[in-house]
């Protein structure tokens, strides 16, 4: 006689969220813990978006820059290369140049860049602001309007700018990524606020604020596990949304990712190390409940895809 392994009885499920226009992508829908396919369904395996930036990166380690060297000065070409050469099924445009503490691009420039990319590529598009609540509110609002019909995902939407960005997302039918600082209660609170504002439940995803391996990933990991447990076991419907992790930008600024091999030979080849730091960050976030990862290095993405396919069985 065999042993009887206790099954977890799940009473909730994650909502399915779609975005895109000509090409749509659907996330979420799981009714069990991540990759627990032996006791539940994961109808949409986690997805990977490839990131492109509005300006050529100034602070990336060589290993991250190398695959994109010929296209970094044009986000449209960059997105094209991600799709054609690396098989990207989603593009994430990172509008870092908006940052008032950095380049402080005028909002019009960001809108123009986003519109150009939105027109040039057919795959679903995520547009991500710079993290400054005020500047993002202005820019994302304008981008929502300019890209009506494109079915974008826009983020990060925060406690401080949700009403402005949320209203535009409702009006022009985009999905919002609701970001809170690694805290389950704040995540729930922001989702409630978005709901009260009138953002439909099929247009919200949770951004728990991703940290990288070695830089606090354990906090993100546990908050994501708790969010998933609340949604699946306690039917907390304000937490039953897919989770997005904007992780690559965190990984590639980890101190040990940028150290040259001659400075510390024990860390091994810097390219392989960076790729593995990114892929392992992805691996842990996936197992904590990520439905959508924003990634950078084509090789890290390739490996992560294979891992996902293996875990799905």
């Amino acid at each position: 006689m065999g042993v009887e392994i206790p099954k977890t009885s799940y009473s909730g499920a994650i909502r399915q969220i779609s975005f895109g226009s000509a090409n749509k992508v659907t996330m979420g829908g799981a009714n069990s813990f991540p990759f627990h396919v032996f006791e539940g369904e994961m109808p949409n395996p986690p997805r990977i978006a490839m990131e492109v930036y509005d300006h050529p990166p100034e602070d990336w380690p060589e290993a991250a820059l190398a695959p994109f060297k010929d296209v970094v000065d044009d986000p449209v070409k960059w997105a094209g290369k991600c799709i054609e050469e690396y098989g990207a099924e989603i593009i994430c445009l990172q509008l870092k140049g908006l940052d008032p503490n950095g380049k402080d691009d005028p909002v019009e420039d960001a809108v123009a860049t986003a519109s150009r990319v939105a027109e040039a590529v057919e795959v679903p598009l995520i547009v991500w602001g710079c993290g400054n609540d005020e500047k993002d509110a202005e820019a994302l609002k304008a981008i929502c309007e300019a890209c009506e019909g494109r079915g974008l995902m826009v983020g990060p939407v925060t406690e401080n700018n949700y009403s402005r960005v949320g209203a535009a997302a409702i009006a022009y039918q985009h999905v919002v990524a609701a970001m809170t600082p690694i805290d389950i209660n704040l995540a729930k609170q922001l989702n409630i606020l978005l709901g009260n504002l009138g953002v439909p439940d099929d247009r919200i995803v949770i951004d728990p604020n991703s940290a990288a391996l070695g830089y606090g990933i354990e906090y993100t990991y546990s908050v994501m596990e708790r969010i998933r447990m609340a949604a699946l076991l306690q039917e907390d419907e304000r937490l039953a949304f897919p989770i997005i992790c904007n992780m690559a930008r965190e990984v590639w600024k980890v101190k040990e990712v940028g150290i040259p091999q001659q400075e510390d030979p024990k860390l091994g080849d810097p390219e392989e190390r960076g790729i593995m730091m990114e892929a392992m960050t992805a691996s842990l976030l996936l197992n904590a409940g990520a439905d959508l990862l924003i990634m950078r290095h084509p090789e890290a993405i390739k490996r992560t895809r294979k891992l996902i396919s293996d875990m799905m069985g």
Partner: peptide
């Protein structure tokens, strides 16, 4: 033991096994 693989794995282990 490939250093570029071992280091991330050990760091991940340190993170996950940290007492919350």
């Amino acid at each position: 033991l490939e250093p570029a693989h071992l280091f991330p794995l050990l760091v991940g282990r340190l993170n996950i096994y940290t007492d919350p």
